[in-house]
Design a binder for these strands. Structure first.
Lengths: 126, 126
DNA sequence: ATATAAATGACATCGTTTTGTCAATAAAAA
DNA sequence: TTTTTATTGACAAAACGATGTCATTTATAT
């Protein structure tokens, strides 16, 4: 279930993940990959993401009011949250978690997961 | 900027909000409104939501990996969060907030908002 | 009761994201 | 090097939510 051929295109997408430690959207990946391989097509980025997903190297990050992002599975394995910069529209990883969420639940509800998205301005935009 | 005519259709949508105290999607609103007015069209639900938004009666609720929901503005005015049931796919209001989120921010980041979505099973599905 | 125009609903259309297709390319095996 | 076939990229097309259109309906004012 691993990506089978080592192509320049797949490497360009992998390098985008490796060099940018934040959740990336498909258009962001396309832009980043084009910096290393200007000829890479959007269709190929979609396919690379699918393959990396199937290989278990990346996972989907759902965020409110925005299209899906993707990030390295080994980063996602450590519980963390995200910050969305309203100016540059980028997402960043936030390490740490408020905790104590079970107290917020109404009677009878069963908590399995939670998802925290902070938003405001990132360091470069503030 | 208020909805101008009091139609059965608009009332059906308003009643959906009034009788169901949780964030509702367009299809959910359509289903609920049809229970009171089976002839109401989806197009009309879209327009009713737009009008109620313009009138300031409802606001948009963005949630991760799901289409937008809408809820009454007076409910949204009190800071709260949401719970998503993975079984029935409904969203519920959660009152209370973990707080202390500023500590999680990296240097230089400016926090303006936050968004917490718990998920699991609701009382009726658990 | 009548006139006016906002609102409705059926349908078509749009805009965006995602996927299908297929001839050409190129990575890995022979 | 040659062969094989996974992969690519251009293009078409699907999927989807949301909106435009317009003849008809109907709430409201007169």
């Amino acid at each position: 279930m691993k990506a089978q051929r080592q192509t320049k295109q797949l490497q360009a997408v992998q390098q985008a993940f490796d060099s940018t430690c934040r959740p990336l959207s498909i258009p962001e990946l396309h832009t980043l990959a084009k910096q290393r391989l200007s000829s890479i097509g959007l269709r190929t980025v979609y396919r690379a993401v699918r393959r990396l997903q199937d290989a278990g190297e990346i996972v989907t990050v759902s965020v409110p009011g925005n299209s899906d992002r993707y990030e390295l599975a080994n980063i996602a394995a450590k519980h963390h949250h995200h910050f969305h910069c309203k100016a540059c529209d980028r997402f960043f990883d936030i390490h740490g978690c408020p905790g104590g969420l079970n107290k917020l639940l109404p009677k009878g509800f069963k908590l399995e997961n939670h998802d925290l998205t902070l938003s405001g301005l990132c360091a470069s935009c503030a």
